[in-house]
Simulated scan of single mutants.
Amino acid sequence: MHEQAIQHFKNADPILDYVIGKVGALDYTPESDGFAFLVQVIIGQMLSAKAADTIHSRLLAKVDGTVTPTAVAMLEEDSLRSLGIARRKAQTILALAQQVIQDPQVLEDLSSLDDRQCLTRLCKYKGIGPWTAKMYLIFVLDRPDVLPLEDGAFLQAYRHLYGDADIETRASVWKPYRSLAARYLYRFLDLGYCR
C-alpha cells in the first residue's frame, strides 16, 4: 500500500513529495497494546513530548515496566498523581483500566468498527477526546485515512510546509492516505526540518 500511496502523493502534492524525499521510506509497525498506548497518550494530553515522556517513565517504573489494566488498577489516584499525572487524567486512566478488566475485548472490538464508530466509542469515555481517539486509530488500528487536525506536532509541521493554507482543503488531495501523510509530517518534524 505504501508504494501506491507514495505515487499518489507524488502526483497530487509536490510539497508532500518533497517531504518524502527528505524523510525517505517509513518503516513502522502498529502499536500492539492498545491499553498501554491509550494510557501513554492520555498522559501526553496538552503536555510537551519531554514532560509526557518523563511522567510515562515514572509510571513504567511504578508498574515494573508493563502498563497493564491490572497493574494500573492496583494504583490509587493519589499514587498516579504523585507521578505528575493530573487528577482528571488519573481518573480517566483508572476508569479505563476498570473497563478493560470488566470487558477484556472492549478495545479489541474497536477493530471491527469503521473510523467514525471508533471515534464515537472512544470519545464516550470521560477524558478521551478526538485527539486521543485519532491517535489510537492511526497508531494502533493503522487506519489509512485519518487526519489528526487536533495534534500540535502535525499542525506545526503543516504550517511550516504549507503556511496558512486551509488544512482540510489541502489534505483532501491526500485521500485516501491521510494517515500516512500525517506520519510523514511527524517524521519531517522529528528529523528537525521544521525550524
Score class of each variant (00 low, 15 high):
residue 177 Y to H: 08
residue 52 A to D: 06
residue 60 L to C: 06
residue 69 P to L: 06
residue 118 C to W: 08
residue 132 T to D: 08
residue 150 E to R: 08
residue 129 G to V: 01
residue 40 Q to A: 15
residue 136 Y to N: 06
residue 27 D to Q: 14
residue 173 V to C: 05
residue 64 D to N: 13
residue 110 L to V: 04
residue 167 I to W: 01
residue 97 A to T: 11
residue 61 A to C: 11
residue 146 V to L: 03
residue 17 D to M: 09
residue 151 D to H: 06
residue 61 A to M: 14
residue 93 I to L: 09
residue 55 I to R: 09
residue 66 T to M: 07
residue 24 G to L: 04
residue 30 P to F: 02
residue 29 T to Q: 15
residue 86 A to I: 06
residue 117 Q to F: 05
residue 187 R to L: 06
residue 105 Q to L: 10
residue 114 D to N: 15
residue 1 M to A: 14
residue 106 V to M: 11
residue 30 P to L: 10
residue 40 Q to V: 09
residue 184 Y to P: 03
residue 30 P to M: 09
residue 58 R to C: 03
residue 139 F to H: 08
residue 128 I to N: 11
residue 129 G to C: 04
residue 25 A to S: 13
residue 5 A to G: 02
residue 111 S to T: 14
residue 98 Q to W: 01
residue 31 E to K: 11
residue 147 L to A: 00
residue 36 A to N: 05
residue 12 A to W: 03
residue 183 R to W: 01
residue 96 L to E: 11
residue 67 V to A: 01
residue 124 K to H: 13
residue 133 A to R: 05
residue 62 K to V: 07
residue 165 A to S: 09
residue 64 D to C: 08
residue 35 F to Q: 09
residue 117 Q to C: 11
residue 114 D to E: 09
residue 28 Y to M: 14
residue 44 G to Y: 08
residue 157 A to C: 02
residue 155 L to F: 03
residue 82 S to I: 07
residue 55 I to T: 12
residue 156 Q to C: 14
residue 118 C to R: 13
residue 34 G to S: 07
residue 93 I to S: 10
residue 115 D to F: 14
residue 149 L to R: 12
residue 171 A to S: 15
residue 40 Q to F: 05
residue 18 Y to V: 00
residue 112 S to W: 10
residue 45 Q to H: 07
residue 184 Y to I: 07
residue 157 A to M: 04
residue 107 L to F: 01
residue 194 C to L: 06
residue 168 E to Q: 12
residue 125 Y to A: 15
residue 116 R to C: 08
residue 169 T to L: 07
residue 54 T to Q: 01
residue 99 Q to V: 03
residue 52 A to K: 07
residue 46 M to L: 10
residue 52 A to E: 04
residue 171 A to P: 08
residue 8 H to V: 07
residue 183 R to A: 02
residue 22 K to L: 14
residue 14 P to F: 04
residue 119 L to C: 12
residue 84 G to F: 06
residue 113 L to C: 00
residue 163 G to M: 02
residue 78 D to N: 15
residue 12 A to R: 14
residue 40 Q to E: 15
residue 87 R to F: 05
residue 66 T to V: 13
residue 2 H to S: 09
residue 63 V to E: 09
residue 134 K to D: 11
residue 90 A to P: 01
residue 30 P to D: 11
residue 127 G to S: 10
residue 25 A to D: 13
residue 44 G to K: 12
residue 19 V to T: 02
residue 114 D to S: 06
residue 43 I to F: 01
residue 125 Y to E: 13
residue 142 D to V: 09
residue 127 G to Q: 13
residue 39 V to Q: 04
residue 90 A to V: 03
residue 131 W to L: 12
residue 101 I to N: 14
residue 183 R to T: 00
residue 100 V to G: 04
residue 174 W to C: 00
residue 52 A to T: 07
residue 172 S to N: 14
residue 189 L to N: 04
residue 158 Y to I: 06
residue 39 V to C: 08
residue 60 L to W: 03
residue 71 A to N: 12
residue 167 I to D: 00
residue 97 A to S: 14
residue 83 L to K: 12
residue 51 A to M: 07
residue 103 D to K: 14
residue 151 D to C: 12
residue 1 M to T: 12
residue 36 A to P: 01
residue 93 I to Q: 11
residue 86 A to M: 13
residue 19 V to S: 10
residue 6 I to P: 00
residue 57 S to L: 09
